[in-house]
């Protein structure tokens, strides 16, 4: 009896959940389907069955040179992530393992830099970039993305490092490990998972950043965010091409995101929710 009831409940929950999930996922699904249609097909009205042509992908690649913005996105997101880690790992490390009275204040202050609206410094940053010849360069944008995400990277690493028990260090020290040995053989292996998660989240954030990447680039350093924005003034039939470009732009990050759900919660809430 109880079993029958719970089975019925499970069935209802399943139907409702799938319905809600499909509605939320629909815009993405429909984009992928449209990218597999021909242009006339794409505007013929609602249809979930494409003709599975790859012509839009070919067109996007040959006519609009998709490869360049894609590589820019890869370089910018990886470059800024590595640079941020390089600066943030020592900082998070020192705050986690030798905290002082001011550690908490420093952390909060770092977080508060995230609250500064980007647009408030648009003019000075634009002028600085112009004067130093950094506009539309990968280097300029990499530095920019590094600075934007640095507070999140420090915070996230800090919450991971803090969980490494201090006793292990003491034990290693008792066994006569040097500071260097301590770092290489004891701490690093324990810190790697946290660093990896931080890296993953930061790549996602950098890949999708859509203010500075659009405003500080034109063609040479323009990543996918800027490339897709150029589709906002359509010329002729472009639904299928837009879909193909969009699918390519979101696919890598979507897949990475699916694998990093847990880390995402932790990273974006600064460790407040685990």
């Amino acid at each position: 009896m109880a079993r029958a009831v719970s089975n019925r409940r499970k069935t209802i929950a399943t139907i409702v959940a799938w319905l809600v999930a499909l509605i939320i996922f629909f815009p993405i699904l429909y984009t992928v389907l449209t990218s597999l249609k021909t242009e006339p097909e794409a505007i013929q009205g609602f249809s979930l069955v494409p003709s599975f042509t790859l012509e839009s992908y070919v067109t996007v690649h040959t006519q609009r040179d998709y490869f360049k913005p894609f590589m820019n996105s890869v370089v910018l997101s990886l470059g800024s992530t590595l640079l941020a880690l390089l600066v943030a790992v020592p900082a998070a490390w020192s705050m986690a393992f030798s905290p002082t009275r001011r550690t908490k204040d420093i952390l909060l202050w770092m977080l508060s830099t995230k609250m500064m609206p980007a647009v408030a410094v648009l003019v000075p940053i634009y002028l600085i970039f112009r004067d130093f010849g950094l506009l539309d360069t990968r280097i300029g944008l990499t530095i920019m993305l590094t600075l934007i995400n640095l507070p999140i990277v420090v915070w996230m690493l800090y919450t991971y490092f803090r969980e490494i028990p201090g006793e292990i260090l003491e034990a290693a020290r008792m066994d006569g490990a040097s500071l260097w040995g301590e770092i290489v053989y004891v701490l690093t292996p324990m810190a790697v998972p946290g660093i990896a998660s931080t890296m993953l989240l930061n790549i996602i954030l950098a890949w999708n950043e859509a203010f500075w990447t659009i405003r500080l680039t034109t063609t040479n350093a323009a990543p996918l965010t800027a490339f897709i924005t150029s589709f906002s003034s359509p010329q002729g039939l472009f639904w299928a091409k837009l879909s193909a470009a969009s699918t390519l732009a979101i696919a890598p990050i979507l897949i990475m995101g699916w694998f990093s759900q847990k880390q995402l919660v932790r990273g974006l809430t600064f460790g407040a929710v685990k």
């Binding site: 499909l22 939320i24 996922f25 965010t225 732009a249 990050i253 995101g257 699916w258």
Partner: peptide, 12 residues
């Protein structure tokens, strides 16, 4: 399916 929109870049 439900978490996917979060990973879609704003212009897309």
């Amino acid at each position: 399916m439900i978490i996917s929109p979060f990973f879609v870049m704003p212009p897309v």
